[in-house]
Design a protein around this nucleic acid. Sequence first.
RNA 1: GGGCAAUUAGCUCAGCUGGUUCAGAGCGUCUGCCUUACAAGCAGAAUGUCAGCGGUUCAAAUCCGUUAUUGCCCACCA
Length: 915
Amino acid sequence: METRYNHKEIEEKWLKNWDEQKDFKPAGKGPHFSIVIPPPNVTGALHLGHALNNTIQDILVRYNRKLGKNTLWIPGTDHAGIATQAVVEKRLMQEEKKTRHDLGREELVKRIWKWKDEYETRITNQLKLIGSSCDWDRQRFTLDPICAKAVRHAFFNLFKKGLIYRGKRLVNWDTHLHTAVADDEIYHETVKGHFWTFKYPLADGSGYIPVATTRPETILGDTAVAVHPEDERYKKFIGKTLLVPFVNREIPVIADEILVDKEFGTGSVKVTPAHDPNDYTTGLRHKLPMINILNEDGTLNENAGEFKGLKGEKARAAVVEGLEKLDLLIKVEDHEMQIGKSDRSKTVIEPYLSDQWFVKMDMLAERAMQAVESGEVKFTPARYAKNYLNWLGEKRDWCISRQLWWGHQIPIWHLNNEELIINNEELKGVLDKCFANRSDVHYYKSENGEWLVCSLEEDLREDSIEGLKLERDPDVLDTWFSSALWPHSTMGWPGKTEDLKDFYPTSVLVTGRDIISLWVARMVVFSQENMAQIPFSDVYINPTILDGLGRRMSKSHGNGVDPLDIIEKYGADSLRFVMCSICTENQDARLPVKKEKLEDGREINISEKFELGRNFGNKLWNAARFLKPHITDMGHEKSCKSLNLENPDSDNLEDKWILSRLNTVIKETQKALANYRFSEYASLVYHFVWDDLCSRYLEIKKGEISKDSSALLSHSLYTALDLLHPIMPFITEELNAILFPNSQRLILREWPSANENLINAEIEKQFEDIFAIVEAVRSVRGRYSIAPSQKIAAIVRSSANLESCRNMIKDLSGLSEFDFGENLSNPAFSASAVIPSGEVFVPLEGILDKEKETLRLKKEIEKAESFIISLNKKLSNENFVKNAPASVIDGERQKLATQRDIVEKSLAMLKELEQ
RNA sequence: GGGCAAUUAGCUCAGCUGGUUCAGAGCGUCUGCCUUACAAGCAGAAUGUCAGCGGUUCAAAUCCGUUAUUGCCCACCA
């Protein structure tokens, strides 16, 4: 074995081995444990945030596989509708100076599939190299035929139930991508704008109402001006008629106390129902006409009269200029305001009236809320349940249509009846006749009188109805629609598949907090609707990874770090170990990153943080390297028998101690994992291996390794490899193969169980007390800079019989002589220390620095005395003695006695020194 | 505006059921070591008004209130 652990070949070797042996396939005899991956978007490659998310999932999967459960992890990717189309369109523009319209729908979609193939391959490769033990044969894509079938079924069922409807609504319109986008696909930017106040002339020419606006161009779409009913200034105008400048439309002055705040601006509001959310609801309240003044690309349309064709800032400037010319402008003020921009195209979002598809959420949301309120679905950390409930509580209908080309096309066909071939009223009869025997077709008349036909079949043909043309709705579904079905669509729903029977519902969902509402909530909704059960019982929300500046690591920020960079430099196990350590209850984890140039000229991202994992792996590697010649691989069973673990006959304190430590760690590890306390899990194993096993037990035994101690050492390491395998699968599997070649591979080997009989707090304390002697001597050594190679003598005054620990103390402290006894007198010129079991003296004639020792002792005394004061204060407090539990009081008394002992003995030492 | 967090060593962060096993870890710093597994290591050491203020309690880093600063989510003002 080499002195350093070299990850590259070993990772490759085990990836191949596990794959060949089909270890990632479910094969356990126990109950099922299943996870579906949060499918990464195919917009780009994975970053460290994904590495964290998938490391946690893999830890859970590997742990449960070792517990013997029938374990399945389904991988896959998401088509990420608008995001992917935007990325591909952007590249198309950069590289070929073409828009999607130059290509056409079919060709663009073809290009996006190519992009998808490329990135899906990259993502899959990244996941594999991290060590993700997914069943790769079950890999899904949200747009593949299996998922598409689920989408059509889900849509059809909801349509049939009347839970999906079509209507003209005000939506967020992306004028660049020509599509509706969801509220959560918008970000807000604060910009410096203006606040224009102008005169709204009365139709009879008798005056005007002053009105203020930040968007003067929308005047062209005004259909009313609203004032507060109680506003003395404007009361008299209510019911009068105004004239819209430029277009000379007559509009009413209305009273509306919801829209108007008397105190704000001029106290009067122009109402543009087709281009502002508040005005829209006002328009509905007052049954105002809604005039759309925009084209899909954001330019003003024919309703804008002379301004037709202008867009954005230009349109605004032209309208302002026009107002000025008409002498209607009163004043212009600077005004800071928030504008919505599209996440994907970075262009200004326009509120826009258009026909869209919606899911009615009230009943569905209510049911999904109950699942969490009742505890059926449990969040960890628990606080995130609030996030989920708050959002669902709004019960807003979900706009599921997008005017894109990349996605699941809505399974709806419109009847083209423009030429009124048939009287609209007679259409129902025609449809009934045509689809009478079709349970896979459903239709209804929408609120605007149009007949909509929904089909489960993929290819409802254009000529299905004689004499009438069917046209498929060009819209696609919001990407979250297919994501919402992910847990059951991946398993083959609506089929009644074996997978659904064996693995549904899934065990836990591991995801980030940013998509609790977008995704987690909707999965619960759709699982309840389609499967009549919850999709998972546990939701673990992993922390968000931030860069060194505290910004969220993400593809769109461009600050994402490729996990393969980290793997290249530190190894996959190091990456995983640090990811696991990072997962505390906190919501963020900061990860300072820097660039490094490799020998081959490539520049990669690294972070010192990962040295923790690399160093730990190396430590483990070297411990194994040292033990290798001493280990006789008799197999775990025999090894345990030879140790007689049920009733160890060894009298050695350190042997009992390491067994107690080992079993404590097994127990606590199990507990940490059951509670999703990943950081604690990593820390437990780390400190057991490094501190207990290497720094102490191994150091004690290394002088002479007997048959017994080698069995115990190998047993400890053997078990530690099991405990560590879910976090660091590669190095542990390799070491297991090197040290225990006759043993089963770790990936499938049974998880160790704790033997409570071997856990002994008393032994652990005894060991610590004795180890304090070693530490006291080492401390003296450090204080006087005595090299480890220079042997010294030490004397311990203690009533304890230290005979059995003589060698251990001598070896670990580098002693040439060691005496102990109850009545030993302390040697002259010695450095000394008080320990729980007595006093330690190190004779240092010639080099003892009295001042140094005095100072140290005084400091020690000072510390103990201040402690004594606080203990006395506490113990003399009547209320404390009366109220505190007896065990706490006893503990405090014990502490007081110990501290007094320290002071007493230290004072004696001080006196001795001064002589 | 509503909600959720964070503030602990120079840095990154633990600290769950309140009690000196609780004031910690890793990195960094200082001292001494190539001690026959590991210098990616070993041994020793230094470093803190637990953000401020108030409260509850016999007892507060921990519970409550409040202020400040920071971050995130949701909703948004013509």
